[in-house]
Design a protein around this nucleic acid. Structure first.
Lengths: 209, 209
DNA sequence: TATTATACTGTATATATATTCAGTATAATA
DNA sequence: TATTATACTGAATATATATACAGTATAATA
């Protein structure tokens, strides 16, 4: 990264401020207004200089195609792997697929946040796991796995209904899903007659407030 | 915020992904490419619907003038601010100072993870806030502040004892700290005779397993 | 039943915008 | 000394882009 001149730094900063304010990068003309230039070429040459020095990239042909480079310095210096994880709404019926229509939003989170790796966040509906400290609208980190033990909290799907419960398998063709709330009763699944799908395992929890 | 349709959610998500990838919002034509539409008006009408429902704003006349509403992190220059936050053990006695002997470890976490900013994590001891879904060994994100309202969950210190409770101030010289567990009783603090220090406010919660 | 919202295709166009070209001027290099 | 980088004005233009208009079709509401 070559040296930046004071004036180029001003332009770079003005671009950052513009993006922060509007959510999208400025045009050459916008930069002129902000900086007091009278010709769009003033902005153009500054942009080309900033591109040459590696501070920005410019998408050819596209309008407002400026991308600020090197803003991820935090992650690099700390050498922490941060990933984006989708938040999936636990709809009353239907599987919690990662299809985009089910994704509430993406949240950045260090990938080793909970010790064990996980694949997505599920937004909890209902209070059936209240006594385990899992409340309505909590986000639980879910690992897509079929490797669960008795006593694990799992995300399971029975006939298109998704639920979070304690897992027990007392015999080879029977599974019991136990809530952590006296107001709810156990769900017993006969694997010979009923459909059962294990979406994954509860790894951790986040409560936004 | 009105209800979003699955298709509109797809479009919204596609805009977010585009911004994340390029640093600037898509054109109508870009959205068509991503979504498989054959007419720019398909994107246009979806954008107008999303605008009407409050998910985005559209700058009139400007190219790529889409702003995602209600999401500070994603569109701001593309990068995510990740900080290291100390985990402080809630020792039975003693204040939760940030002195190094009290710090269990540092964990990386996006600084806007809980919506509100926070200063440290506190490891919870005991089950006095069980019914609020705060369990033993949970990590609660604490913001150092004295600006609390009745009903907020706070971290308070009374005579070197640190506790997490619901906060109420019924009169000028009295504070009531209420647990969320019938097995515990309210703590009443007479500010004229007893020492009381407000360490901060509960912002969010993380459970590692 | 009429109306509105959703979800599209397809065409057209004014204008917003990137980008090139022609200059001027100063300071820093080689 | 010639060259290159910086720092601008001013004008011109191809095209990228928003946006309106004309349709079609389905489902949900009033």
């Amino acid at each position: 990264m070559k040296d930046i001149t004071p004036q180029q730094n001003k332009v770079l900063n003005c671009i950052k401020v513009y993006i922060k304010g509007t959510g999208f990068p400025p045009t050459r003309s916008d930069i002129c207004k902000e900086m007091g230039f009278k010709s769009p070429n003033s902005a153009e040459t500054h942009l080309r200089a900033l591109e040459k020095k590696g501070f920005i990239s410019i998408a050819s042909g596209a309008s407002r195609g400026i991308t600020i480079i090197g803003e991820e310095s935090e992650q690099e210096s700390g050498s922490i792997e941060t990933d984006n994880y989708p938040i999936i709404g636990l709809v009353a019926a239907g599987s919690p697929t990662l299809a985009s229509e089910n994704i509430e939003k993406q949240v950045p989170c260090p990938s080793n946040f909970f010790g064990s790796p996980f694949d997505y966040f599920l937004r909890v509906k209902g209070l059936s796991m209240k006594d385990a400290g899992i409340m309505e609208d909590d986000l639980i980190a879910v690992q897509k796995t079929h490797d669960v033990k008795n006593g694990d909290i799992v995300v399971a799907r029975i006939d298109d209904e998704v639920t979070v419960k304690y897992f027990t398998k007392p015999s080879n063709d029977k599974i019991v899903l136990e809530p952590a709330n006296d107001d709810f009763s156990d769900i017993e699944v006969d694997l010979r007659s009923e459909e059962f799908f294990l979406e994954g395992k509860y790894i951790g929890l986040i409560r936004e407030n």
